[in-house]
Every structure is written in structure tokens, then in C-alpha cells.
Design a protein around this nucleic acid. Structure first.
Lengths: 351, 351
DNA sequence: TTGTACGCGTTATCAT
DNA sequence: ATGATAACGCGTACAA
């Protein structure tokens, strides 16, 4: 008695039909007469055959039904960000109709293990990059040479890679203008990561920031407040915002009257730091966020923020992938954020 | 001019070697003389060949390098839970040496789309189930018939499926004993989801809870406080804990002097609700959590909680998968939680 | 160290 | 509605 698993050929033999007919019974690509179908199904059942081997089907079809998502190194920090979570949901939803699932690939895999899977070694039909740094960009030509569609979200992967992006600069500028219109002049900025390492601290005025989101939002803020100091955090988290806020509010003399945070989580942390310093929000300090996501436990504040369609970003990435898989050349997508006033901004108090 | 992609056979032909030699140059399974290797590499470069097609390699090897992770429906809510995030990190880390990546599969895919990928249609080497409900359990025999190893984390998928579990009941009992030893008698419980739908509300005394984590922790608490009322939330989130806390503290007369929350996030929400109700923690109300994860923005409280090795859960699942792929039969793993006293529990005030 | 020969399991195409 | 044929691209005994 052999242990070999039954194949569709075995099923066909037992059912007394050709392999192609048996195949069609499972794929449903072509009509099959009821009696024939039943014989094939019975044969399959008697052999314990439960359907085509996905690996063989994948080779034959030239499709694996897998879309890679290249994320930062730590899933823990990556998914700490609600925007990323919603993005993933939108993406999952958008690739499901393609019959595809999401394969998580870490950008710097290989530090863990020599043979960690990569964009070139995994059976993937397409790849979605969440952000894109230099080292990743260098591996892309190989992937593209294989004819694998690539889409990048919130990043720049070269001109031939379609982007799903946000109007980060314009949106952030709107928030800054709002503060300016309220009368603020002493404004500080709390930014997202300024580099892959997540170096915390004041950003040098002439710093060349390579993280697109961070840079673009920073530019938007400085379009209005050119000299506003900026403090970089490592992650988009309340704790990081809190730490940054403590620094900003350390000196009562020089403290800002308004803080532009590059994410809602950071803004929440800044608010906490303000409270700790005995400052009232918005009377003593105004705070703006970015993202427009519900922050767990932020009540009773309602953040003045920019709402971004995070789930739509994922959906757009999925749609772009779908289009490319059908041979089309999708254009980049620029999504827009909506300014949403809350109760965390107000005019500065008279000095 | 044909558009066909170059194959390893083409490379071999151009290099003037046999296909097997060319193959070996890429796989490194067998030593190859330097001159030969160079010729192969040159030929590959000239043809734009960037390595073996993963799909074909996968069929030939019988391995795809993909481990499925079956998660709940919404990635957003799933990854809201820090425990799940750490679990995923541990899992990713543990499967990387296998050359495997993680394929996210949603439990109820198919509501989105007919042809969403499933455990049986995707090219996977193994599957890790995060929790397991009845409908999922019913699909497992098909998967097992294919010889695909399955591991379940925090759930019951049948006796032949190894489990990675926590000493939920014992651990929760320890927290309850702690409260009892402090002198508490009026204790309420805030639980995780009581069913797949996430029905919020008081749990009927005779309710038959099918979610293992929730049930086991509830039992642990009731081992000490048999009559403690329990309020179920939908997600492990601060907001859900806040909502539950509001209910618990609604009536000043009958309010509990201590609350056992089944997660740290829920506990945090309960604390916020207590503050809102004008209750001091721990003087007026004691609160215990579960998980031992850093809660973003919880400071200055330090939760009295049970620390669970979340990352290790993921690592253990990965190790079990690795063992099964090598033909071994891994035993189930029971991890233990550690009681960690904080500053959120104290004796009840004299009445 | 290199080459030969074959099979992995399926499915698209075309003919009947 | 069904069947014959031919790939899909690779890896690996085994022989030389």
C-alpha cells in the first residue's frame, strides 16, 4: 500500500473519464453532464481526493493567488497604528475578489534568518509596499523583471511604480492655516519617524528627511510656520507623543501655544503631557492631529484633525493591483484628507 | 521576438551546461566549479533570468514556504489587541528560519467574495489558527487530509490538533484570590467577547460560553467569587472597557469594590470610567487586568495584572509548525502567566 | 563535477 | 459534453 496522495489522474481513472474532464468538474470552467460529474465526485470521495493541489494549479495557471505586503520590521509597531490596520482591512477586502490573500513580508527579513522568504523567492502575483526605503527600492527591478506588479502606498518606489498617496502637504498646511487664523504664532511640530531607525529628538533645520509622509507633512506645516521647531518620535503612539509633549512643555517661558502633531495618537500623547504640565487644552495649548481615527480613550476630547480615508487607501492599492494583473497600467492615486475641527484648538490666550 | 520569460533551461543552453548544473548554481545544493558557475551566472544575466520560478520550485519541492494564519474577520480589531500583535511577531520570527512567510486568511472570507482564498485552495505548508469556532473546525479534516499541519492558539480544534494555550483559569483565579485576600467581596467581571458576534451585555448566569479564553478566565474568577456578575464586551479595547465600567458604576449603591477585567485594555477603560464616576483607583475601586502589556497612555497607573508571554505564544506556535513539518508530533504547549501586582488594587474602604 | 531522464499535478487548447 | 495532448519550470536520483 502506497502512501502517495491521490491525484486528479487517479480520480479520472477510477471514474472512467479523462483527466481533463475530472479537472473541469472541480474547476467548473466548462459544463459537465450530471451523471459524469457524479461519477467523478464519487471517485474522488472514495480516494480521499479533496481537490486540486494548489501548488500544481498555481504552476499551471501562472497565478498563485498571493499578494505580498511588505511592511516594516515589527508587526507589533506597524499594527499599533490604526491607519495601518484600516489600510490592511481595505487591502484584504480588495484582493479577496481576485481570489488572493495577503502574505506578510518584512522589509528587513533576513536579519532573522538566511532563508526568510523575500519578494523574489515567494510565489506571489503582486506586491504592495507600505512605504519604501532605499534598500527595498534596490530589489524592485528584479521583482519587476519577473512581471510582478508593484504598488506603493505612502512612499516613492520609482516612477514606474504606481503610488497610492495622500495630499499630506496640503492637508497639513490646512491645519496650520487654521492655527494661524486663530492667532497662533508660537507653534511646535511633533513628527512621525524621521528615519528608518526611529531616532527621537529635535529635527535639525536643514535635515534631509527621507520618509515621505513625515517630510511632506512637515513641509505643509512649515509652509505656514517656516520656523516652527519639530520633534521627531519613533512610532505613532500615545506614549511617544507624551514624551515629545513633555519636552515641548518643559520650559513654561518658551512653550508653544499650539502643537501640530503628525498623527492622532501623537496628538493624544501631547494632550496628556499638557494636562500633566497643568495646561488646559485648548485654552492654554491648542493641539491638532492627523488621521481622523477614533482614539481609544481620548474622550472627552474631540481632536481637531485631518481625516484621511485609510481604508480607501487599502482599497485603492488593491484596485491598482487588480488592474495591473489584468494588464492595465494604473495611474497613481492621490487621496485627499478632510479638515475636521474639534475641541482641541482655540485662540491663544492674551499674553 | 517572443515574450516568453527565460527559464533555467534557456540559461543552461546559453551557458553550455546541463539544466541540472544551472539549477545547482542557484540552489547551491551541490558544489560547482567556479568557471562553470560564472558562465551560468553570466548567461543568466544576459537573459535577464533572476532565479527559479517560485511556483515551479514549489511544485517540485512540495513546499510553498507559506504558513497560513487564520484570524478573525477584521484585521483592524484583531490587531487592536497588543497580545495578538506580539503573537504575530513571535510567529513571524519563528517561521522565518523555515523560509516561510505568513499568509493572512480571514475566518469568514467568502462573505466578501466567492473566490476568496481558503485553507484548501491556497498553497500553504501549514496553518496556525488563532482561536477556532465550530464552522472553522468543520473545514479542518479536509485540510488535514492534505497532510497540512495545523496548530491552534487559544482555542480547541479537536484532539488531534496541537494547542498553544495559556493557564487562563488558574491565572485568573490568582488575581481573584488576590482581591479576596485584600478583603473584597463585591466583585464584578468584565469579559472579552462571549460569542463570535461580540454581543455586549450582562452574561446570563447559566450562559454556555463557547469562546475558550473568555470562558476559562471567567471560570477562574468564579472559582473564587461564584456569584460575581459578568459583563461581556465586544473587543479588547479601552473604549469597550469604558462602556462596561459605566454600567458597573452606574448605581453608587450597588457598585462593586473591585473589577476583574479580562484584558489590560478593558481594565484601562474601567479605570477611566471609575475616574469619570468620581471614584479613585485603587482607594474606591480596585481593578485587575490581564495580559501584562504596556498600555499606551495608562500612566501613572501600574495595573495589577497577569503577565502572559504573548510573543512566546507565537514562537511556540511556530516551533510546533516546524516540528510537524519535519514529521514529528508536537505536544500541546501550556504557557503560564505571572501575577504582577501594581498600584490599581487595595483593600476596600470600610463601609 | 557534470549530464541524462523523468516526474511533480494540473489545466488550456483544440479536436471530436 | 468529453478526450488527447502538451506544456507549466524545476529539482533530483542516478549514471558517467
Amino acid at each position: 500500500m502506497t502512501n502517495r496522495r491521490a491525484t486528479i489522474a487517479d480520480v479520472a481513472r477510477v471514474a472512467g473519464v479523462s483527466p481533463s474532464t475530472a479537472s473541469v468538474v472541480f474547476s467548473g470552467k466548462t459544463p459537465v453532464s450530471d451523471p459524469t460529474r457524479q461519477r467523478v465526485l464519487d471517485a474522488a470521495a472514495s480516494l480521499g481526493y479533496t481537490g486540486p493541489d494548489p501548488r500544481a494549479a498555481s504552476l499551471r495557471r501562472g497565478r498563485s493567488g498571493i499578494v505580498a505586503v511588505v511592511v516594516g520590521s515589527s508587526l507589533n509597531f506597524m499594527f499599533l497604528d490604526p491607519v495601518q490596520r484600516l489600510l490592511m482591512d481595505g487591502l484584504a477586502e480588495a484582493v479577496a475578489p481576485l481570489g488572493a490573500g495577503l502574505l506578510l513580508l518584512r522589509r528587513d527579513a533576513g536579519i532573522d534568518s538566511e532563508n526568510a522568504p523575500t519578494l523574489t523567492t515567494a510565489s506571489i502575483d503582486a506586491a504592495v509596499l507600505i512605504g519604501c526605503d532605499r534598500s527595498l527600492r534596490e530589489t524592485l527591478p528584479d521583482v519587476q523583471a519577473r512581471g510582478i506588479p508593484i504598488v506603493v502606498v505612502e512612499g516613492d518606489a520609482g516612477d514606474d511604480v504606481p503610488r497610492i498617496a495622500l495630499d499630506n502637504r496640503e492637508a497639513q498646511r490646512r491645519a496650520a492655516e487654521h492655527l494661524r487664523d486663530l492667532g497662533h504664532t508660537r507653534v511646535a511640530i511633533v513628527t512621525l519617524w524621521q528615519d528608518a531607525a526611529g531616532t527621537r529628538g529635535w529635527i535639525a533645520p536643514d535635515a534631509d528627511i527621507t520618509i515621505d509622509v513625515t517630510r511632506d507633512r512637515l513641509r505643509g506645516a512649515r509652509d505656514v510656520f517656516p520656523d516652527a521647531p519639530a520633534f521627531a518620535s519613533a512610532h505613532s503612539s500615545i506614549d511617544d507623543g507624551f514624551a515629545a509633549g513633555r519636552v515641548l512643555f518643559a520650559d513654561p517661558q518658551s512653550r508653544p501655544t499650539a502643537v501640530i502633531a503628525q498623527s492622532d495618537l501623537l496628538a493624544t500623547g501631547v494632550i496628556r503631557a499638557a494636562e500633566e504640565a497643568g495646561l488646559r487644552v485648548p485654552q492654554d495649548v491648542s493641539v491638532t492631529g492627523f488621521d481622523g481615527i477614533p482614539v481609544d480613550g481620548l474622550a472627552p476630547y474631540e481632536l481637531t484633525t485631518l481625516f484621511q480615508p485609510a481604508t480607501d487607501k487599502g482599497r485603492a492599492a488593491g484596485a491598482a493591483v487588480a488592474a495591473m494583473l489584468e494588464g492595465q497600467v494604473p495611474a497613481s492615486v492621490l487621496l485627499t484628507s478632510t479638515f475636521r475641527p474639534g475641541n482641541t484648538t482655540a485662540p491663544p490666550m492674551a499674553p
